[in-house]
Design a protein around this nucleic acid. Structure first.
Lengths: 122, 122
DNA sequence: TCCATGATTCTATATTAATGGAAATATAGG
DNA sequence: CCTATATTTCCATTAATATAGAATCATGGA
């Protein structure tokens, strides 16, 4: 990841409404939520929400999928992981710790650190 | 962590100079760098750097330590970890993965996931 | 005390972003 | 085709942030 993409992503998240939107999408997972559901949940006027969704989309943090009249938005987990990795890259010059950042993305989970779920916890 | 702190931290990082400053401090670790060293490394005018250092400090992401005429700045790793955790909290409603975010902080490393360093790798 | 060095504050200018009502667009069902 | 619903775009207002030269403050050595 290059710094410009990271700045775009961080700018997108550096706003209360957008951070809230992103977090509920992270918590919702792959199915996502429609714009209307988000607007209702967070009590944000439609026009304002639309503006914020565009910002998050342009930053690559969320993706949209149309289903009939509804547009479902869902978090882009690999974008999030790339951002986390970028922020913590080469932490402490590699010593005495390595950085571990992973969320919902096989690519990261498999190579760096297996997540501790109820299933994998022995 | 509450959302206002997270927004402050993200706003602080959502700027190219500040993100660069933060990253080299993350990479430098506990010793940190003096304002002058940072200014020289990143070719940022003193007044501008001072402004950005204040922003990062107010956001809680870095801390300063005076040593004679020099002021050393260093990353606040627990603030960073709190932020990472806030962003990924309750990811996918806890299924099918758990979130792992940790950097240079025993509290996080010990409980969630041991870092894979040359020493701990087997 | 005087000077050099490191860092911050002051200040003015320039740039960018947030907000939400109203109008426009798109889809689906009757 | 007409209407209801879902969402976006347009727009004007308001507010916040970035930049860096010059002045100021703080520390330590001669």
């Amino acid at each position: 990841m290059e710094i410009n993409s990271a700045v775009k992503a961080l700018s997108a998240l550096a706003q209360e409404s957008r951070l809230s939107i992103f977090r509920i999408l992270v918590q919702t997972g792959a199915d996502g939520l429609s714009a209307g559901q988000i607007a209702k949940t967070l009590s944000i006027p439609n026009a304002t929400l639309s503006f914020h969704l565009k910002e998050l989309t342009h930053a690559g943090l969320i993706t949209a999928r149309q289903e009939s009249r509804f547009i479902y938005y869902y978090a882009n987990f690999s974008a999030m992981n790339e951002l986390l990795q970028f922020m913590t890259e080469n932490c402490c010059a590699g010593q005495p710790c390595d950085v571990v950042t992973a969320c919902c993305d096989d690519k990261y989970q498999a190579t760096d650190c297996l997540p501790l779920t109820k299933e994998t916890l022995l």
